[in-house]
C-alpha cells in the first residue's frame, strides 16, 4: 500500500472538476435547504437541465454557443417555476417527493430510446464544447509536483473555481441583506413571516429558482468539461451526494457547501484508493472478506453511514452554528 498514492488520488479529486460540479449543486441546495428550509430532492434534475439546456440547443437545434449558455441558465429557471407552483404551498415533504420524481422523469426522458433524436438516448450528446475548448488561454498543463493537471483540465478548473467563487460571493451578498433575513425566517416559521406581510410563496419561488440556476451552472460546467452529456450522470445519487457534501460542510453557511464538496471528494477518492489497494491481489484484506468488486462498493456503504451519523450527531456540519442550524437534529 502506498499512502502517497492514496493522498494523491484524493487530492486530485478534491480539487478536480467533480468537486466543482458538486460544490455548485450544493451551493444551490444550500439556498434551498440551508437558508430557506426547502427540501429539494431533485437537484440532479436542475443540474441535468443546465447541462442539456446547453447541449440540446447547440447540437439538436444548431443554436450558437452563447445561446446554449443562456439556455443552460433559462432551463433551470423554467423547471423551478414548473415545480414550484404546485408544491411550494404544500408541506415540505411534498416538495421533496415531487422534485425527486421530476428529476427522475427528466432523466428517463433524456435517456429514452423514443426521444433519441432530441436528447441522444443513453449515449447522450456531444460536439458542442468546441468554443469553450478553443478559448483555452493556457499553452500547457501544470505540474505541482505532487499533483498535476493537463492543459484542458487546468482551463476547466480555472473557469469552474471562478464560477464557484462568484456564486459564493452572490450568496454572501444576498444572505446578509433583508432578503436573506426573510429566507431564514421562512426556514423557521412561515406563518410568522406571513403574519408580518411578506409574500412567502414569492420568496420561496425566488429561492428555488436561484438555487436551481446555480445547480444548473454546475450542469453546464460538467457539460463543458466533459464535452458530452450522458443521462446516467444525473441520477438521484447526484442529489444525495450533494446533500452529503452540504451537510458535511455545514448548511446555512456561505462556504459550507464548498468545503463540504472538497472534503467529500477527498474522502470518496481517498477511501476508494485505499480499499482498492487493500483488497484483491497484494492487498492485506483477504479476498474472502473483500474482493476487488466489493472494495469499490465499500466507500458508498460508508457514505450512507456518514450521512446518518452526521445528521444525528452533528447536523450543523463542520463550520455550521448549531444554534441557528435549519434542521433540529439534536
Amino acid at each position: 500500500m502506498d499512502i502517497l498514492d492514496i493522498l494523491r488520488a484524493a487530492l486530485q479529486q478534491a480539487l478536480g472538476p467533480q468537486a466543482i460540479v458538486f460544490a455548485l449543486a450544493a451551493i444551490g441546495l444550500n439556498i434551498h435547504f440551508g437558508y430557506t428550509g426547502l427540501l429539494n430532492f431533485g437537484q440532479a434534475g436542475f443540474v441535468a437541465v443546465g447541462a442539456y439546456g446547453l447541449a440540446v440547443s447547440v447540437v439538436t437545434f444548431g443554436a450558437p454557443f452563447w445561446l446554449g449558455i443562456t439556455m443552460a441558465i433559462v432551463a433551470p429557471l423554467v423547471l423551478a417555476v414548473i415545480l414550484g407552483v404546485p408544491t411550494l404551498r404544500l408541506r415540505a415533504d411534498y416538495l421533496a417527493i415531487v422534485t425527486i420524481a421530476a428529476a427522475e422523469v427528466l432523466r428517463f426522458v433524456f435517456g429514452s430510446v423514443e426521444m433519441k433524436d432530441t436528447f441522444g438516448g443513453s449515449n447522450g450528446l456531444n460536439g458542442y464544447a468546441g468554443p469553450f475548448q478553443d478559448a483555452n488561454p493556457y499553452s500547457s498543463g501544470i505540474d505541482l509536483g505532487f499533483i498535476s493537471f493537463g492543459r484542458n483540465d487546468l482551463w476547466s478548473l480555472t473557469v469552474g473555481w471562478v464560477l464557484v467563487a462568484l456564486c459564493c460571493l452572490l450568496v454572501w451578498a444576498l444572505m446578509r441583506s433583508p432578503w436573506g433575513r426573510v429566507l431564514r425566517s421562512i426556514r423557521e416559521d412561515e406563518d410568522a413571516v406571513r403574519s408580518l406581510g411578506k409574500n412567502v410563496f414569492a420568496y420561496k419561488m425566488q429561492a428555488l429558482a436561484l438555487g436551481g440556476v446555480i445547480g444548473g451552472l454546475g450542469g453546464m460546467f460538467l457539460a463543458l468539461k466533459q464535452a458530452s452529456v450522458v443521462p446516467s450522470d444525473y441520477s438521484t445519487l447526484m442529489t444525495f451526494y450533494a446533500f452529503a457534501a452540504l451537510l458535511l460542510g455545514g448548511a446555512g453557511r456561505v462556504m459550507g457547501p464548498v468545503i463540504g464538496s472538497v472534503l467529500f471528494w477527498f474522502l470518496i477518492a481517498g477511501l476508494g484508493s485505499f480499499f482498492s489497494q487493500s483488497a484483491g491481489k497484494g492487498g492485506w484484506i483477504p479476498t474472502v472478506i473483500m474482493t476487488d468488486t466489493q472494495a469499490s462498493v465499500i466507500r458508498y456503504i460508508m457514505l450512507g453511514l456518514a450521512i446518518m451519523l452526521l445528521m444525528i450527531f452533528r447536523p450543523q456540519g463542520i463550520i455550521g452554528d448549531r444554534r441557528e442550524i435549519a434542521i433540529d437534529g439534536r
Binding site: 452572490l170 451578498a173 444576498l174 441583506s177 433583508p178 432578503w179 436573506g180 433575513r181 426573510v182 425566517s185 413571516v193 408580518l196 406581510g197 411578506k198 425566488q206 436561484l210
Partner: peptide, 15 residues
C-alpha cells in the same frame, strides 16, 4: 423583519 416596504427585501436590490 417586521418592517414593511423594505427595498432590501427585493431580490434584485438585495445584493
Amino acid at each position: 423583519l417586521g418592517a414593511t416596504g423594505q427595498k432590501g427585501e427585493r431580490f434584485w436590490a438585495a445584493p
